[in-house]
Nucleic acid binder design. Structure first.
Lengths: 340, 340
DNA sequence: CTGAAAGCGCTAACAA
DNA sequence: TTGTTAGCGCTTTCAG
């Protein structure tokens, strides 16, 4: 590793001057500047980011805490976030908690403020006061996908109107003429997907339909869980003509279950998801879903986090992304008359 | 941020002692140890990882360079790698190059050796000499998925026998009675998937079949490219009964194309992939593929990288993972007689 | 416009 | 067993 002072020696100046040249501080004569630049090139000098961070009192990394980067939604988010971070000269450390609060806590304790300047939290199953604690210790925190614009948390966040997303799905199904729904809600009743279901239910109610409470299943956010729940649901309620899933993974599972039951999507049963992950486009039939502005949310999250770090923004802020949009593909159609 | 010396002051000792206590160096009296520990707890002290890194002359982070974390294969790898890194007290910075060598180079120049102690390279389209350069600058590099155990590169690597993977797919198809193949090879002729195709072709040759060269397409590693290539291929060569794809994504695209042509997988045409990504299990029909030991490769990559960093291993080493395994699902079956 | 010097928070000899 | 003292490589006042 060539160091600043080696460059300085070669250029016949002091390291402070080299530093000034490199940081474009101006206040350096053109000739010295050139000499320094030559020395830098000749030695192949690269600034030592760790040393710089210590001296500046700020780290060049940001942490992204997710439950599992292997969940198909996160990579798209992470890609955009990393891109945005890089555009601002920052690097991204990914932290998988596997939904274990202890792991999340350990990550925060270790790196927040000591290795990373700030933290992005993506549904990582961490208690709010834990987050507030790390914020108070000086490392800004932003919640990347807050689901309820109506009830902002006491932490900075990027909110997506998932209530509306649910409602959009419902209105789409209603518009097609469906009347008998089943709902698959990812994660437990009070959990992160509850708002999507509420949006769905209230749009149904508005259209004069009673809530399909007895045809609702609270399940894990996986293909398998969607599959199993659909199997049960359709056995108990064969009159169902449309399935609302609060996320794409269970929706995909539902489609597989329906196929295995010898039924056809969308002829016999329509299925909708929320998010629009990559698989949604690839599956057969392609999944009709409500797309969430993932990239925008990622960029906004990074922007907000940086603003917080640089104290350009007051701490409790919420920024809302564009509204989710229906992506109509092949898994939904008008219900067909069936023997009842 | 509470610092070491604040803790020291409260405990009535010097910061060196606190450091010793925290690093379990022994050589500290039991009472002082307790006093120090109390002070640490009382102040909520957390070591400043950046400062520690600078003092120790080693960084706690490792860099994972991939072309895009959004490619469905990488997240599974990244998850396992991050897990392994964490088990060794290391953090993982993900770097997406978007297959742009300039971005990759920029990453290496910036963080290798200055922020990260070592680098994991995952098909990132970086020239070998670039990598050798960063290695020579003192930051070990490991290639995470070298495709040819026969021809080790001059850099440390974890090799997977993709030649055999291709052969396994071929033998499976051959065993089913197929004779007329088409092949979809991800990336250009000389590219990363060439070895898989060679394995496939040589297994065919061994079974007395001539290479299906005129029925081979070199395409991008995407669902869409697989779809388009299959459409063309089947129009030109309707007699094909099986498609070998060098990766799962094109295989999935092939299945969709076949369906859109009004044909059935596997009744009319069988399809095989390589890797066994998550989608392979979810697609309908579920994809028969040759599973690659992703987690093992990730763990081995981390282990090797750490060994290199700690100079426990000579630099040009290659370690080979377990052999890929056939995962027989629903996309392959015996060919059926068709009018010729 | 350039240099000298202090210090970021921690570790690691070496002394005491 | 504990303290003293140098740094790690860089940035940043503050003088010159």
């Amino acid at each position: 590793m060539t160091t600043l002072s080696e460059v300085a020696r070669l250029a016949g100046v002091t390291s402070a001057t080299v530093s000034n040249v490199l940081r474009q501080r101006g206040k350096v004569g053109e000739q010295t500047r050139q000499r320094v630049l030559d020395a830098v090139a000749q030695l192949g000098y690269r600034p030592h980011l760790t040393a710089r961070a210590l001296a500046e009192g700020r780290a060049p990394t940001l942490a992204l805490v997710v439950s599992s980067i292997a969940n198909p939604f996160y990579p798209e988010f992470a890609l955009a976030a990393e891109r945005a971070a890089r555009d601002h000269g920052r690097f991204l450390i990914v932290c998988n908690t596997n939904d274990d609060p202890d792991i999340g806590r350990a990550y925060l304790d270790q790196i927040a403020g000591t290795l990373s300047d700030g933290v992005l939290i993506m549904n990582a199953n961490l208690p709010m006061d834990e987050l507030r604690k790390t914020e108070q210790r000086g490392a800004p925190v932003v919640l990347c996908m807050w689901e309820k614009p109506d009830a902002p948390p006491e932490l900075p966040c990027i909110a997506v109107d998932f209530h509306e997303a649910g409602a959009i799905a419902a209105r789409h199904l209603l518009g097609l003429g469906h009347q008998c729904f089943a709902a698959l809600v990812g994660s437990k009743k009070s959990g992160i997907h509850a708002e999507r279901y509420r949006g769905f239910a209230s749009a149904c109610a508005q259209a004069g339909h009673k809530h399909p409470l007895q045809r609702t299943r609270y399940i894990n956010d996986t293909v398998e869980a969607g599959y199993r729940a659909t199997m049960e649901l359709l056995k108990e309620h064969p009159q169902v003509t449309a399935i609302f899933a609060s996320n794409d993974l269970p929706a995909l599972g539902a489609m597989n279950a329906i196929a295995d039951l010898g039924l056809n999507v969308p002829r016999d049963i329509s299925v909708t998801g929320i998010t629009d992950i990559q698989w949604a486009r690839v599956s057969r039939p392609a999944l009709t879903t409500v797309a969430v502005p993932t990239e925008e949310a990622a960029r906004m999250s990074i922007d907000l986090l940086l603003a917080l770090i640089e104290r350009r923004s007051p701490s409790p802020v919420m920024r809302v992304t564009a509204t989710p949009q229906l992506v109509e593909r092949a898994s939904t159609a008008a219900p067909r008359k069936r023997k009842g």
